[in-house]
Design a protein around this nucleic acid. Structure first.
Lengths: 203, 203
DNA sequence: ATAAATTTTAAACAACCATTTAAAATATTC
DNA sequence: GAATATTTTAAATGGTTGTTTAAAATTTAT
């Protein structure tokens, strides 16, 4: 029955996502995935044609997961300070929930960019977001420093994502326990919010 | 002769660094390294005992390379605004010269932190840098916002490293060519300098 | 020049890799 | 309930992996 089919296929998909995120494409074997899904190895190639095809499907989902929540916030009709705060809070929550996601995306794209960009309509959606209009209006009426979306967006996102991507090295470098890092990350989050808002918003 | 010995060993070391940086530990085979060094496969295990041991040696060097220049600047007796500017310029130059270095370090540590931290005296050196004293003095006499080294340092570094680590995704997301990205990165560098200085330095 | 030490080589090792096969088990359709 | 279609299995494929071996080539020391 269709119900059963989807169950096995989804079990593999979910297991593959977990393993790929944790170990990367090169570090993951088909056997790893089968074991994580508690299924026979041959099934990964029965449902998906190859490790590569399975990976590409997973990667597309993961990339959309990365952008989707942010996109919703970017299009909200709210004050720009509030918007920056919400994006950062959302990023923060994402990094805590899925600590492997961003470094996984960055690393896989860095290693082989050409193979990982299907027609991602989400990219266009990000480019055409309502925040872009807010920036233009703010620059025009002098309330905001004139900046393009592509300049401000990385400034908003880099702070939180950087310290979480490098969580272990930051812990080691500054001799922090996990609890220390927890507090530290919260501090840092507020610094980033204040710093970016101070820079963008005039007066 | 010793001269010849060092030549082969160093050839392997340099080849291994290039390949590891580009493909990561999991993506690199002993044969890749031997081929890059133009030597017999068995030699990689003759000079270094295993792929793992060779990797650990390379990784230690790479991590020190990452911190060394920054450390020198951190200890300079110069104005703090100038210092921030120099750190960012230095980071920028490093990302252009070695585009794989930071994402490599981040990813390898993220995947297996415990195995990659030998006694790194450079970590202590970073913690005890002269910038720390400058921050304390500036906070005491009211010229600087009170911040710890561990809070300000990532803010200084994350901007440049983030956009270079994610160079390909930024190019794709904002439809930039390599030349576009070149200009964009320069813009971004100046934004980061201004933003961080404005935040840290009072008045 | 000869013996000893070092470096390089080709070949092989068992283990593991992604993927395929064909038969077995199960579910679906008539 | 028998025929058909789908799903799962164990086993095998050929190729690659990290590493080792033992002999050959080269360098060093006597």
């Amino acid at each position: 029955m269709k119900c059963v089919t989807e169950k096995s296929e989804d079990k593999i998909r979910e297991a593959a996502k977990r393993v790929f995120l944790k170990k990367g494409f090169d570090g993951t074997t088909s056997r790893d995935i089968a074991k994580e899904a508690d299924m026979n190895i041959a099934l990964t190639n029965y449902y998906f044609r190859s490790k590569e095809k399975l990976f590409l499907e997973i990667f597309k989902d993961v990339l959309e997961e990365y952008f989707q929540n942010m996109l919703t916030i970017l299009n909200k009709d709210i004050d720009i300070k509030q918007k920056i705060s919400e994006i950062i809070d959302n990023d923060f929550a994402m990094m805590k929930k899925e600590p492997d996601l961003v470094i996984f995306i960055m690393n896989e794209i860095h290693k082989s960019p050409q193979r990982l960009f299907p027609d991602m309509s989400i990219f266009r959606q990000v480019r055409e977001t309502y925040l872009k209009k807010q920036l233009e209006e703010g620059a025009a009426n002098g309330t905001l420093r004139p900046m393009q979306l592509e300049n401000i967006l990385p400034l908003i996102k880099c702070g939180v994502e950087f310290i979480f991507m490098g969580k272990e090295i930051h812990k080691e470098l500054f001799m922090m326990t996990d609890e220390d890092f927890e507090r530290y990350a919260e501090e840092q989050k507020e610094h980033i919010k204040a710093m970016v808002c101070n820079y963008l918003v005039i007066g």
